[in-house]
Design a protein around this nucleic acid. Structure first.
Lengths: 215, 215, 215, 215
DNA sequence: AATGAATGAGCCTTCATTCAT
DNA sequence: GATGAATGAAGGCTCATTCAT
């Protein structure tokens, strides 16, 4: 049994993931995808309609895989203490972004980052389906930790937390160059999640202290 | 005195900034730059050698401008308390990234983000010249705030701080869509800087408490 | 009994007529025909061998239908006066070309015009089978009207008559734009036939007068 | 001095005329035009913008040439007898359509016929600029010949005249096959023009007689 | 009898770059 | 110092056709 037995469409999808992840949308050529998949140049248009649609499918596929493999609420129940749920949220976030070792997975994360930088039309649907619900969960946790905070503060806290996580993905190249010992890999992810959780809980306590302080 | 008097090269540079910032490297065409500059199609290659070299110059120009306009150590002296210096550092970081109102400036930040995601050869020099020294300063501040911390912790704290700042740039599109009231604009930057500083000082205190705790 | 019961081949033929008539040979795609017929993309080649052969069949089908529905000698007998037979000939010619109301039929005429302009190999057989015999009939009528005319004159008269008829088909688009009240439709065809017959009989009389004139 | 001295654009235009005339728009490939012109594949887009625009220019060029070389009112003055003007009109019409010997010219006529059959967007402007004014002239002549005729009759006469002329172009292939002695070539055009004029004047007289007849 | 999958050839267009002037 | 003309390479896409099932 060889590669050509698993269906051209499947092979195209796999090849597309690799190439798009490596080069981004614009730099990727249909020719390269087809060559890597051992398929004819016309295969992409036959199976997916266009380079654009293939890209959309790659994006959607990656996200649906990531969220099914690393669900938002893994390891905690709704009534766990909010600090625990925050820690779990951060772990999940990092895992979804960076995977658990598969190098292809890591690279796909980069695609999403590129979309964040310059959201394409394909990304909007993705945003509504995956990103926004996830963000709701984080907001909810923060609100429990800061019951008296105004909306603005909740958003800012959530942003600070997300920012810390995203750094590992969007600045991966630089981190690897400037302090390689920090670069997230399969093993070190747990440690990073713990740190971010602690750091963020510290930040939140300070805000809590501030809001309870007598003026 | 009209536009065509200020030299084709200068006009090309200005046009290149606009177009590269708007579309990114690959999406930008030499044609577009030349058209905007009112120059001949061959002008880019004549004055800059190639599209690539022009891009490098745009990048370098932007960074040298940003660092001269918003220096790292503005508003504080080396012996100010580290908390103040942290706050100043964050302010400077955000200003360098997002400018103080010039829309062209804001967009150029996006170019840097794209380079972070996928560092090109042009970016390496930039990194060594601008990014690394800046990061040294941040490390130094964190070390003063956490005198007993191991290297790893210092790096992680610095990363958390930087991550919070970068979010405003690399997720600008999404922020604008999901919570527009947070999106950084000229005015709101100070508020954001204060929040990140407070949040980070809170995170650092917690680590400090932890490391002093009896095992 | 539904559409799919009447045989893929039949449905393909019907679809091909529509699409070829609408778009001409080159602009028509096999895809479109198959889609309209609700058949597989490979069906055309399976049932007809190739796009070319399908086209030939469409052409032949159209002509055999046209000539069976509007025979050359309808409404007159061989010994009717030649002027009557001319009128009948012209009527038949127009009906064969433009049908009697079926919009599909009208459009198929355009196909024939295109073939006239640039006869394809498929068209030669058609020519010998349908066009030439018809032209013989016309020649015969003209000869009776101009018994003393030389061959050349007979041909020219026949040509003038045919030319007047064809105009309504090959310039249909322009007529509709420039004088829509002339555009042939189901109803107005009889009127047009009468006019052409009268006009032509006038032309022929003049020739007759000329050839009888004393030099 | 060789071909390459006369400018790529000029050579492209000449090549385009040949190829478009030979094959029609859709069947023509930019590759073929460029090859024939000895130019690079990109040359068409550089000089003309697109295959479409080149086609438009070819069409326009041909018509403007045809009308400047064979003006509508050549050889007669506005107050010549209408019969003479009709004869001149027909001569001009045939010359414009078929040229005076240049085989390239003849072929370009075919392009126009194809447009008549299926007017493309390029053709509309052409129609308004060249075809309609010419038709006005013909109408005017017919009206003088039939001063009492209603509009409808004038249009029909004009149509009959135009139809006889067009036949020589749009059915050229068939004529050559069925009665080659009629096929218009450089020399025989005058003869054809005379015949059509006589035939048409005959048709018109008959109508005139009809309208003057006591009911 | 019919089809889903796949393909090879070809098309128009875009683009950065070069070169003679 | 600057440019109009030209080009080579490549890219996405379309289409009629083939083939195994």
């Amino acid at each position: 049994m060889n590669d050509s037995d698993i269906g051209t469409k499947v092979r195209l999808m796999a090849a597309a993931k690799k190439v798009f992840a490596d080069r981004g949308f614009k730099e990727t050529t249909v020719r390269e995808i087809c060559a890597l998949a051992g398929a004819n140049l016309a295969a992409v248009n036959y199976h997916f309609g266009s380079k654009n649609k293939l890209y959309s499918e790659v994006l959607g596929d990656f996200l649906s895989f990531a969220f099914s493999r690393f669900p938002i609420d893994v390891g905690v129940c709704p009534d766990s203490p909010p600090a625990d749920r925050l820690r779990a949220y951060i772990r999940g976030f990092l895992y979804r972004m960076l995977g658990d070792g598969d190098p292809l997975y890591e690279k796909l994360g980069k695609l999403l980052m590129a979309e964040m930088l310059e959201p394409s039309e394909h990304f909007i649907a993705t945003l509504e389906r995956y990103i926004e619900p996830t963000y709701e969960v984080l907001q909810h946790i923060v609100r429990e930790l800061l019951p008296n905070a105004v909306e603005d503060i909740v958003h800012r806290c959530a942003g600070s937390i997300v920012g810390q996580c995203l750094l590992f993905d969007h600045a991966k190249g630089i981190i690897q160059r400037m302090c390689p010992e920090l670069a997230l890999e399969a093993g070190s992810l747990e440690r990073a999640a713990d740190f971010i959780a602690d750091f963020s809980l510290g930040g939140i306590s300070r805000l809590e202290a501030g809001e309870n302080a007598c003026p």
